[in-house]
Design a protein around this nucleic acid. Structure first.
Lengths: 316, 316
DNA sequence: TCAAAAGTGTTATCCTTACACCCATGT
DNA sequence: ACATGGGTGTAAGGATAACACTTTTGA
């Protein structure tokens, strides 16, 4: 494997970060430029690994400590290069989880937090079927289905929509698949280059758009996180040290975008030995004061897999 | 066309492929140099995407059609660069599944197939507890545990070994975690640069070594594939068009490295509607002729998730 | 006293695992 | 006949989803 005599044309490495925090019981991502960009920048070549490079970069540019980090995906599509200088760009994206307690300014050029459901309103089922699904997404998907002249194509489109968007069998993990289907159908047309971001409320685009393929990267991050909470205790990376079971449930619901069954959720959590009581209680719950719990870090050493299974609920 | 004022030092992109096929009921990977290297080479910059670049590269260098492809991981550790020219290398690895019917030469400079259990003998539980686990791995892990002078470190090591290597609760998906633990314990010391590959039978190294971090990449690929067969019907990418349920079971067992419960495996398969009878039978089974089945590709359009759950078996 | 959220106990159902057994072919 | 692998039915156990209900606070 000789190091290639024909040196390839210049290549730049860019890092993208999907930084997630729970603020006011909402899953939020750190963004730039009024929510149109994910934090991203060139990889400085003098870090020993990509992860340390990412950590340094994020902490320098956003003044945020970075907790759990995980690689998402690497792109090197030529279409990205066209958007800049003809130079090839390899973009490596990461998911990062942090704890953020106070809400900062959420606009301007400074980094700001945005609810991720701003970009994917159809993914939030916590309050029942999301309005945008019935009102915007489904009608346009149906139009897209009917727009196919070839009956075989039409059937295929109908089936794919059915699988990914059926209310009865909604699967919260398919965030990326759904986004890609919408992209194919031309309903989220912002990706592909840096162009003026359309008015988020304009009817042409569903959900707030982002520059480049950043919304796609965000979809990848959400999908990964939603899948992960089921077999790894990563929710706790987003929680304060002490919390009530109610808060924990709200956190999981916020990430999964679905309401959970309270009693079964509680049983699952303590059956798995994920938490322990601190002894204190919190009176700020509105009703009966709730016991406070903390994450049992030892669990990471006790079991190979331990996550937050989702006790779903049809009722509420 | 002077790009960027502060030009970073040159970066090269390298692609690595974990190419898997089932040959003689064994999971095999395509290798170079007598099994010491995974297929890998520079990414030619004029492909629209990484995947097309990988496909072209693999098909040109190995004369192999490439079926299912999935990205594994991207490394850019500085230690890799040191092994070559001081130039930074970003290495992007892929998992590829292909169908290979006939066994070719498995040595020399030409590409050749190697059973992946050659590199990870402790991962093959199809015939009960693997001999190398009891005879090599566990004794040395115990020595590693005892080598820690600090009692806290010793306890932590013991716990980690317990989680990842306990016979009673063996988890076949933890291939990478186990490899990393063995690496940390100094039992698979080949990674880190191009050095003479030690005699595979020498007692110092457990399992056949590979150059660079290729064995780690292979572990990543196996882990990914083992996890994936449980929720996506990827086994069929490795099967011939027609097969018996017995062959299918052997295939899944080969990948998972565990024996499965025959009756339940069959029930699971047809409950899920993954296959349909072709009408023909195969008399080459040794016993009663078996019905032939084919994969129902439609299932990909019918359900979002459909995999080969593993009906494990204590007995056999 | 009532609303609101915490917290407990029990039941029905389904899925996983296991066991027991019969069937069709080659030697 | 018997060994070998193919193929079917059914029962036990555990996990999930659901329901009903009690407890403790603040307004």
């Amino acid at each position: 494997m000789p190091p290639a005599a024909n040196r390839p044309r210049p290549i730049a490495i860019e890092l993208n970060a999907v930084l997630v925090a729970l603020i006011d019981e909402e899953p939020q991502v750190l963004t730039l430029e009024e929510g149109a960009l994910l934090p991203s920048g060139p990889f400085e070549g003098d870090h020993p690994t990509l992860q340390t490079g990412l950590r340094a970069w994020v902490e320098r540019h956003t003044h945020h400590p970075l907790g759990y980090v995980e690689q998402l995906y690497t792109f090197a599509d030529r279409s990205r290069a066209a958007a800049t200088s003809g130079r090839r760009i390899v973009s490596i994206s990461y998911l990062g989880l942090t704890r953020e307690l106070t809400r900062e300014g959420a606009g301007g050029r400074e980094p700001g937090w945005q609810s991720w459901y701003r970009y994917f309103p159809w993914e939030d089922w916590r309050g029942g079927t999301p309005a945008s699904l019935a009102r915007q997404v489904m009608p346009r998907l149906r139009r897209w289905i009917d727009a196919a002249t070839n009956p075989a194509v039409r059937r295929s489109r109908r089936q794919r929509v059915e699988i990914n968007f059926a209310e009865a069998s909604w699967n919260e993990d398919l965030v990326l698949q759904r986004y890609e289907l919408l992209y194919e159908a031309g309903l989220v047309p912002e990706a592909g280059g840096r162009r003026p971001v359309a008015d988020p409320l304009a009817p042409a685009v569903i959900g707030a758009p982002m520059h480049y393929d950043h919304r796609r990267i965000l979809a990848t991050g959400i999908a990964r996180l939603r899948a992960k909470i089921k077999y790894r205790p990563v929710v706790f990376e987003l929680m304060p040290p002490d919390f009530t079971l109610g808060q924990l449930q709200l956190a999981v619901e916020a990430l999964a975008g679905r309401p959970l069954h309270k009693q079964n959720f509680r049983r699952l959590i303590d059956q798995q030995g994920l938490v322990e009581e601190t002894g204190a209680v919190s009176a700020e719950t509105g009703g009966r004061p709730a016991k406070l719990y903390r994450f049992r870090r030892e669990i990471l050493l006790e079991r190979a897999v331990a996550g937050t299974k989702l006790p779903l609920s049809r009722t509420s």
